[in-house]
């Protein structure tokens, strides 16, 4: 870890925090507005790679835990880690790491399609695999029911995966971070 790595980690933790105030994407078919913040999770992994991306999200979560309202809607403090959706916050951490790991693995031939697939697998597959059992545990409902309740968010997450993939590919061309000797 060089000083530059530390700086990148701190900057992406801050970037993901700032994404809480991005204008929400409104899809006409959806009842829930989509907040941009989990896009920051995909980007942390997809731009910085596994280790730095995961640490950036960890740093953000530490700041939230010590009482800063950095999550979308001004949420923050310890209560978000004790609420029903706490599993998704833990999932962010793993998702950023997995997306980063896959991006590093497929870096040389990274295209819009492969970047989208990476974001869908990590940012939806892995995230929901951790978040849904979390709801199930906290709310005492079966996993299948917790899954049904979360399905409405998947279309929005697919939009986010597409946006994140486009940013990943553009940044790879203009300002690559992963390819360099870390």
């Amino acid at each position: 870890m060089t000083t530059r790595d530390i700086t990148l980690i701190a900057l992406f933790a801050a970037l993901t925090a700032v994404m809480a105030v991005f204008p929400p994407i409104a899809l006409p078919i959806l009842p829930v507005p989509i907040t941009a913040q989990s896009l920051g999770v995909m980007l942390a992994g997809g731009v910085l790679g596994a280790k730095r991306g995961g640490l950036a999200i960890l740093l953000l979560l530490v700041l939230v835990a010590i009482g800063l309202p950095l999550l979308s809607g001004g949420r923050g403090g310890l209560s978000v880690f004790f609420g029903p959706t706490a599993g998704f916050l833990l999932g962010w951490l793993v998702a950023a790491f997995v997306i980063g790991w896959m991006t590093e693995k497929y870096w040389d031939g990274l295209s819009f399609v492969s970047a989208t697939l990476i974001c869908v697998v990590g940012g939806i597959g892995v995230l929901y695999a951790i978040g849904i059992p979390g709801i199930s545990l906290m709310a005492g409902v079966p996993i299948s029911k917790a899954f049904m309740g979360s399905v409405t968010f998947i279309p929005g997450d697919i939009v986010k995966a597409l946006v994140a993939a486009a940013v990943m590919v553009t940044v790879k061309k203009s300002y690559p971070i992963i390819g360099q000797a870390a």
Binding site: T2, T3, R4, I6, T7, L8, L11, F12, L15, F22, I25, A36, L39, L43, V47, V163, A166, V167, T170, V171, S174, Y175, I177
Partner: peptide, 20 residues
């Protein structure tokens, strides 16, 4: 979203180099 994100991310990466 893309027009907001790409410049912001690239600026962020440049800032990292300067600060480091």
């Amino acid at each position: 979203m893309l027009a907001l994100l790409v410049p912001l991310v690239v600026r962020t990466l440049k800032t990292a180099d300067e600060v480091a």
